[in-house]
Design a protein around this nucleic acid. Structure first.
Lengths: 213, 213, 213, 213
DNA sequence: GATGAATGAGTATTCATTCAT
DNA sequence: CATGAATGAATACTCATTCAT
């Protein structure tokens, strides 16, 4: 019955915030951001509406926090801050990491896609939600921390380096573009196809790696 | 001062319905189905809310009518009811048709993607909105008129026929799967990238055709 | 193709008005005044909404016209303008007339009851819709044409006259009141019970007549 | 500053629900169910529209809750679950109880009559709203708990028992029917007549009791 | 920190009524 | 006389957000 220490309070706070974000993410992804009510989230998280507003200023703030958290986790997982050089082994490794992410962060990516599809949302979250265009033609300052740019640069370098290794005609820009197309298609399929346990899709990622390695 | 003829009424009706559907489709695609209010549609169409309900029973009925109309237009344009045999020339022709559709029916396909992403909507429109899964593994009866199945069969046949023409090892199922991945990625990029007039993407469709022909 | 004469126009007018009122009365009685839409009436009468407004200024005006018509028909049928004297034979005859009316003007009386139940409606139609209170204690001028008053007076006279014929103690006011209770109960049952063809109810009116004759 | 206990919340809830139901019942009875708007109820109850929907899912749910409450209260007050045998003293007692109910639950019974008059509503509330027909010819299983049936059976027994006590010709079925007619007429008058403080109506219930005892 | 009662601006929908033709 | 397209005020209902306790 002794009063809780500040540290304990902090732990409670973080636990609750994590709980709320987890529940919210799942329902945002499954039922859509607009269709998911605060009431619904609170009820499923086993807390009151009021408490939700104690932790997050608004429904939109909750959404941003969720995205921020997931982006950071992905950022860490992908370990972008390394030298940014991809050799063939690293390329394969990186693609497989993305494939893992698509499954493990399925809810997040589904939510992200929902939001990207909506123009007005896109305009409001230009940083957190890189538009597909900015992904393709990023207009960001050199050296900035905007990680889609970094990833893109990594792959750009990778494909341009390959050109030098080839003796036959090779169009690195086109190859990069096609690679992005394939990855996007693969991602969408991974996110929105019903889960199935045959190894069709398992093999497809191998085929993609083979193709671009 | 003579009263309007039934034909005149019919014309007015069709004009207004087309107007409403056009305006609604654009806003559904841009701002999302749920975020687009009936008020908004009416204001942009220059009519009253009440008139909307004179022509469409509900917001959902409007949505269904829009989808129905677009599906029919696409159906006609793609001319599915031919023999269903694709030779290489027809294959190229068909892909280019799809490419044209992606641009001309951009709003519709954007809307469709929004709806497909939302689970609950998917369940309600199983025919009009082929789920991504049914697109990949259609469970429909042979011979039915369900056109995604027909299209898929056409391409399946195409890829299996190629196998016989090749002397080197060839996996038609894997090839079909990869083709779908590429088309999906290409479609998403086409639908959600900012329009640009350089010829980067113009070339990409050529590359895709080249790859699978 | 000769132009219609004014008389023919008049006939068309009256036919249409009768048609509209008939259809409206049925639907008002069955579905309720508020739940019955002008559209519904027009559709079932086979005419356009506009035409309805050509004949009746408003939905309320239509209601009033229907009531006015029925009241007049009933008035005529009951032949109130006779001397107002009821002997025993005439008493029986009158009760049987009311019984017939309850069946033949079922829709009208059902509608009337709906309206009487609603206070605000009662206040608006004090003449057409005699409140139950005014029926019991009419506050109208002597000699006026307000027929519930006349009917009431007729029965009052009837029961007071019976007093003189009796040698046993007899309370004409109480008898009148009880008579009204019985007639009201009988009417409500007649109007809202499911029609049945056994002779239970046939006998009940006989019993009532017997009791008060 | 300490948070409210669950019990306090419960009390607030019950108080507000009672308030809302009381206000709604009065207005439903006076202005009619359809004519009474949620806005109206909220304004007269001194609360917001939103709060009403916090406690009741819909206008119809509110109506059902009101009916359910009143039916339960009446059920308790009439104490149906006794042996179901009526001697003459109990008969008088029961009739007087009904008379009291008619005055104390005036609003409820007015509302009930409105609803019974509307065909479609009757079909939806067969249990809560015994149709006049089922009151007269109940088609329910013997022994069921449907209380109009129980009450009817009680009176049926009462009148058939009287037959045996009489030496003169006596038709119990006809007597029961006539009793129902009288009670219905008396009820309708009690519910819809303007309140008056003379003792005319006080005496009528005495007369009715006298007549059937 | 925690609760849920309370609010009100916003949303889809209805429907009597008007009016150009 | 006749039509039905067009309007807009009104209605039931939702939901993010606030706040007293």
């Amino acid at each position: 019955m002794s009063p809780r220490t500040p540290k304990q309070f902090q732990e409670i706070r973080e636990e609750k915030m994590t709980l709320i974000m987890d529940v919210a993410l799942e329902h945002f992804a499954k039922e859509g951001y607009f269709s998911t009510t605060i009431n619904h989230i609170a009820r499923h998280a086993g807390i009151s509406k009021g408490l939700m507003y104690n932790y997050f200023d608004s429904k939109e703030a909750l959404l941003k926090a969720i995205i921020h958290r997931s982006v950071n986790e992905i950022y860490k997982y992908l370990d972008i801050n390394r030298d940014g050089y991809l050799n063939e082994t690293e390329f394969e490794f990186f693609i497989r990491k993305i494939d893992v992410l698509l499954k493990e962060k399925k809810y997040f990516f589904r939510l992200l896609m929902q939001l990207l599809i909506q123009n007005d949302v896109k305009d409001e979250f230009p940083k957190a939600f890189p538009e597909s265009d900015s992904f393709i033609h990023p207009g960001h300052e050199p050296g900035d921390n905007y990680y889609p740019t970094q990833i893109l640069k990594m792959f750009t370098d990778y494909f341009y380096r390959k050109k030098e290794e080839k003796d036959r005609p090779y169009d690195p820009a086109g190859e990069l573009e096609f690679f992005k197309t394939v990855m996007l298609g693969y991602s969408v399929k991974a996110l929105f196809s019903a889960d199935k346990k045959d190894d069709t899709e398992v093999k497809e990622i191998d085929k993609i790696i083979e193709l671009f390695k």
